[in-house]
Design a protein around this nucleic acid. Structure first.
Lengths: 203, 203
DNA sequence: GTCTATAGCCAGATAGAC
DNA sequence: GTCTATCTGGCTATAGAC
């Protein structure tokens, strides 16, 4: 078999990512995906059979891009402070590459919560237990304040992800434009690391 | 004119809230709203003329419920620590009453960012300036660490709102059920207040 | 004001030529 | 594999009786 640089199937998937991530399952149109891919509507069905299946391919791939980001926090072989800093610093870079992705995943999971079970069954789904053990150990050792691993994890995700999800809302409240907002996000690398490490540190 | 306890127009709006907030603009169906209201599809158009107008009525009302919550942080006449505690403690209660609301607002603003301008023009849109002045004053007085009001505001919203937006995702990562998650949210009242006050306090 | 019936359109999906 | 043409169903919106 010959493998072209980028075959039709991949073209379709890329186009579908663009459209689904911006418009969501319900707002997306097969015609728009076909246009984006520069081919015909019938081809979408030839390769993916239905809108539903195409959507699921996009969703699964989206999640497979997020999973390594989460795994970096959960399973990397470094200290807690280092993990917090690594995750926070790399997250903005990730968002610049995939601006619609977290919102897409969260939105579609709210629309169809049962889908998380499909993801959990797949290879590479993040495993929380190692992180939990690490936090418990550091608390035991007295290197950090007593805190639940779950809460720390939620705090880390909240502080990093929310400002991107709610960007239009926050820009509206603060009455600032895109470039000022981008500047704020840049500052948050230090801001978030500072807050969390300050909270964990024993004075 | 006689005012019935709940007239048809309100019935429709309530039903529309249910459906739009769960399904979004694109996923919602006029038929489902009519069923929910226990009346006929034609009535929706009689009272609200189009799906678009009905949606906007729902969206505007949704925002008018959130605005006072934000205003409490921005304009209440209390100290910063008190504001943080008040907002955090009341937010969970608010979410229990309106579980789909913040996700709905954020999602639809991402779909159509221009809509924020309509909201900004309305009465009661939160004004950030008083909060900003307060933070700057407390920094000046040396009662809190130097911090930008914008970042503090973003932190407060992130820590409170995100865990509800991303509930299905976080439940999936932590492999916990609804009641365990609810318990975590309850603990967060103290967790969030602690983090932020700890970060602001001068030791 | 409230209903039934239906117009008119648009989207997902398929048939079939090449 | 790729296209054009078309089917079929569902959705918003309206016409018109009561």
């Amino acid at each position: 078999m010959k493998t072209k640089d980028e075959n039709t199937e991949d073209h379709i998937l890329n186009a579908a990512e663009n459209v689904f991530q911006r418009k969501g399952m319900d707002g997306a149109r097969m015609q728009e995906i076909a246009d984006e891919a520069g081919i015909n509507k019938a081809m979408l069905h030839y390769y993916y059979r239905s809108k539903r299946f195409l959507f699921e391919a996009v969703f699964t791939k989206a999640f497979s891009l997020i999973a390594p980001e989460i795994n970096r926090v959960l399973n990397e072989d470094t200290g807690l402070f280092q993990k917090i800093e690594n995750f926070t610093h790399s997250y903005i870079t990730f968002m610049q590459k995939h601006p619609y992705l977290p919102n897409f995943v969260i939105q579609e999971l709210n629309r169809d919560a049962g889908f998380i079970k499909v993801l959990q069954a797949k290879e590479g789904f993040p495993d929380f237990r190692k992180f939990q053990a690490q936090v418990e150990k550091e608390v035991q050792d007295g290197t950090i304040k007593p805190i639940k691993a779950e809460q720390l994890f939620i705090n880390l995700l909240s502080l990093n992800i929310f400002p991107f999800l709610a960007a239009p809302l926050i820009k509206g409240f603060l009455k600032i434009d895109d470039s000022e907002y981008k500047q704020l996000m840049e500052e948050r690398k230090e801001e978030i690391t500072g807050i969390l490490i300050n909270y964990l540190k024993i004075k």
